[in-house]
Amino acid sequence: MKKVEMNSPSKGIWVFGDYRHYFQNRVTLQLIAKAKTLAQRLGAEVTVVVLGEEVHQYAMEYVAHGADVVMVVDHPSLKNFQVETYSRLVATLVEDYRPEVFLAGATPFGREFFPRLAKRLKTGLSTDCIALEVDAETQLLLQTTPAFGGDLLAEVITQNHRPQMATVHPGVFEERIHDSRPVGRIIYPEVDIHPDERVQLVCSRPEQSKKGYLENAAVVIVGGRGIGSGEQFQSLFDLAELLQGEVGATRPAVDAGLTGEDRLLGQTGKSVKPRLLITIGTSGALQYTTGIQGSETIIAINRDAQAPIFKIADLGLVGDAHSILTLLVEKLRKRL
């Protein structure tokens, strides 16, 4: 059996365990994987904090994915992810155990919960990070986050306040393969729970869209504003069908009403890592490219040879999106 070492609690790296749905749980697994590499540099342990009702299965899953410790608070009043109740409770845990770093996914919940928690702890927070490193000299967490609409990246540090908190863009890091013989501890801290009843969830229903269809597609075809009309945007669906893929869109395309918000990729939308991504009529703004940078192969089609999208493409085609698309669909149909 592997020997489990206790580290000084102030060196801990914590990850907030959001397990609610497939997508959030994947983000948690990605953060555990990243926390493990950071922990090696800091000589620290990775602790996942899991709150909720009957959540033990997730504690097991997180250990299997590399958590050294899973801290579980299991209580019926924690069933809903309620920001006020959670902030108060988690702040007490942080004050008791004093982690060095605390990470959460930059999901809508993470982006609502972590600012409140950071404020309660009077510490710093960076949001929607696309890279995290440990500075060799200072041992500080270097948090890279897009600024000014994504044209620039800012490297942020939290020098004197603890924990160093960050939310991380989903899909930026890769989860570890499940370990069949994991070693980890599950602990049950003693805490007082004060449910905040000023906000009551009346109802919650899934929106009609198929969940995860974009994130799990092997081929993604993306249209930008340069695609032109809604009719031309529809031909992306023809191409997607021929390649058994899905269709995504950039912010300008969504804002122009070419397709719905659920297909939005990038900083304010989804991140994808398909085997192949074909991006058409997109200039390549960083707000968008942060959501596609994990793609194995990127093919870009754009009229403007200087478009930044070509800098991240494995193959770039300079030409009119509409005529290339029409011809491509025609040729592929003939092959079937």
């Binding site: 710093g124 990246l153 939290t158 493409a313």
Partner: peptide, 22 residues
């Protein structure tokens, strides 16, 4: 303030494949 933005930079392009015209 607890945080400092100490460096700003542009994202380094990750890959640059061939760009073709025609």
């Amino acid at each position: 303030s607890a945080t400092r933005a100490w460096k700003l930079h542009k994202a380094a392009p990750k890959r640059r494949g061939e760009v073709v015209t025609g």
